[in-house]
Amino acid sequence: MAAASDIVSPPRSALPPRRHPFIAGLLRLVREKPLGAIGLAIVLVFLICGIFADVIAPYGINQISPVNRLKPPSARFWFGTDHLGRDMFSRILFGAQLSVIIGLSAASLATVISLTLGIVSGYFGGKIDMLLQRLVDAWMSFPELIILIVVVSVVGPGMVQVIFILGLTFGIGGSRIIRGAVVSTRENMYIHATQSMGASTLRVLLAHILPNIMAPVLVLFSTRVGAVILVESGLSFLGFGVPPPAPTWGGMLSGSGRTYMYMAPWLALAPGLCLTLVVYGINVLGDALRDLLDPRMRGSR
């Protein structure tokens, strides 16, 4: 019997050894899915902006300058300034940081929850499936925004609460998709074949079913990152998100962005366009990854 760590690991040597697999994959992405490569570039730019916001930002996030209030974009203030004279470019950068943290962690949490629920429900079926799916039904019958607002009202606003609630909500909803994929994969002859080779249930699940449902998992994850960033912005817009003066994009849209929409449209345009661009980039990248990681799409002889 293999050690527990062996259960998941398909051997490294399974990959063609010529070039470093990461570089090879990147080249294929650019060559076969140029749109996906653009998505990757967008995501990378925002990641770098988020991670190095402290270094890149020319001004502090809450550094006010009453003389430079509501200045349009210029060489000095790339995205203009808001009603307190804060530099929008700096605030967008730190907003990227918050969005990246919230988006990635909530989407990861959601994916883990979806996978656990979906695999257990889909593979074991029967009464377990019945019970779990009715619980999922019950949870999904509440609009997620309502659940969020209730929880935030009770425990108070904050990033951790938002991540946790969004992860849970999206995770439970997404388990449906995973369950469907598992149910159809489970019935494949090769799963029986693996069982007939003496593989344990855990091994069948992790080494044989999981790789075959990676396509929906990836798409789920990438759309979730976008959705989480959007919902977080919506929450901030409603005043239930990460509280100000934290520079979330949603907060910027709803705060100064809405108030000065006609006088200073850049206040709404900058965070709005960033939001659009990131969500687009992530979705395009997820789509491209799904296609590339499917071995059936790799060149046949």
């Binding site: 062996d6 002859m189 499917d294």
Partner: peptide
């Protein structure tokens, strides 16, 4: 099994699948 077209896992290499019983039952390394 019948249907060789569907009895092999499409997302694992042939080597992994043919080698798997060795790992499972003989404690071989991958």
């Amino acid at each position: 099994f019948q249907e060789p077209m569907t009895s092999l896992n499409p997302s694992l290499t042939l080597g992994v699948q043919v080698g798997e019983p060795q790992v499972l039952h003989r404690g071989a390394t991958w």
